[in-house]
Design a protein around this nucleic acid. Structure first.
Lengths: 128, 128
DNA sequence: ACTTGACCTTCCAGTTATGGGAACCCATCT
DNA sequence: AGATGGGTTCCCATAACTGGAAGGTCAAGT
C-alpha cells in the first residue's frame, strides 16, 4: 500500500504519516523504488493513532498507548491511568474555557454593537 | 518604570513583555542606559493585553483590540464582532472537548484498571 | 520514444505564544 | 573591588503539524 492509500485508510494526511515515521511511531517498509510500503499492520497502527489523537491524546501518550496495545501482557491499569490523567486534563481545560465563555458571553450580551464607541467589552479590558 | 515593575503591575512575565515589544504591540521608551522605560500608559496597555489574553484572544486579536481601545471614534460593533467570533470559536472548542470528555469518561469507567490485559480503552482505539 | 500528469521522495521553513539559557552590560552595597 | 541582582540581546526549543521547493517514478496517451 502506498502512502496515499494508507492516508485514505487511516484518515490521516500523508504529511502527517511521514511525520509519524520521522518521530518513530511507525516504521513502514520501503519498496525498491524508495516508496513507503505500508502493511495492513501499519495501516491499523495509523488508524489507532488517528483515533487516539482524535480523543486528544498527545503524541507521546499515543506512543505509550501503541506500546501498550502491542504488549499482550499489559496491565489495563496502566492504560486506565493514562486515560484518566488525560481526562483530568481535559476537565481542567473545559473548566477554563467555560469560565472564558461565560465572561465573554456576558460582555458580548452587554455590548450594543452599533456605530457608537461606548463598549463594555473594551471597558472591561481597560480596567479590570 | 523598569521591566520588572511593569511585569508586576501587569501580571505578565518580563519575557512576554519583551516579546510584545518585538512584535510591535507596545513601544516603551528607552533610558540612557538602554533599559526599557515603561510609562503608565505602557503599563495600562500591558494590563489590557494581559486581560485580553486571559480571555483567550489571540495576539492578533489583541492587536486589533488595542487599536480599537485607542480609537476614540471606534464603532462598538467592531469590538462586538471580534468578541462574538471569538466566543463562537470557544463554543466550537467546548463542544469538541465535551465530546472527547464524554467518550473518554465512558471508556475510563468501563476499564477495570487492574493487572489483567483486557482493556476496553485499547479495544476502542484498536477497532472503531 | 516522448511527454504529461499524478504520484512519490527529502529537506527546509513557518506556524502560536511563549520559556530557557548563554553571554554580557549596569547599578548598588559592602 | 567584588558580589549580587537587575537589565540587554540573541538563539534554541516547544507541539504537531502544514506548505512548498526541487526532484525521482510510474502509468497512460500520442
Amino acid at each position: 500500500m502506498n502512502i496515499s492509500q494508507a492516508a485514505t485508510a487511516s484518515g490521516l494526511p500523508a504529511k502527517t504519516i511521514r511525520y509519524y515515521e520521522d518521530i518513530g511511531l511507525i516504521r513502514p517498509a520501503r519498496s525498491a523504488n524508495g516508496y513507503r510500503a505500508f502493511s495492513d499492520t501499519d495501516a491499523h497502527k495509523l488508524a489507532f493513532l488517528s483515533r487516539a489523537r482524535s480523543l486528544g491524546f498527545s503524541i507521546e501518550d499515543c506512543r505509550t498507548l501503541l506500546a501498550l496495545w502491542e504488549d499482550r501482557s499489559r496491565a489495563s491499569g496502566d492504560v486506565r491511568k493514562l486515560a484518566k490523567d488525560h481526562l483530568d486534563e481535559i476537565d481542567r481545560k473545559l473548566a477554563e474555557l467555560h469560565q472564558m465563555r461565560d465572561t465573554l458571553a456576558h460582555l458580548v450580551n452587554c455590548c450594543a454593537g452599533d456605530d457608537r464607541p461606548d463598549c463594555p467589552i473594551i471597558d472591561k479590558l481597560a480596567k479590570s
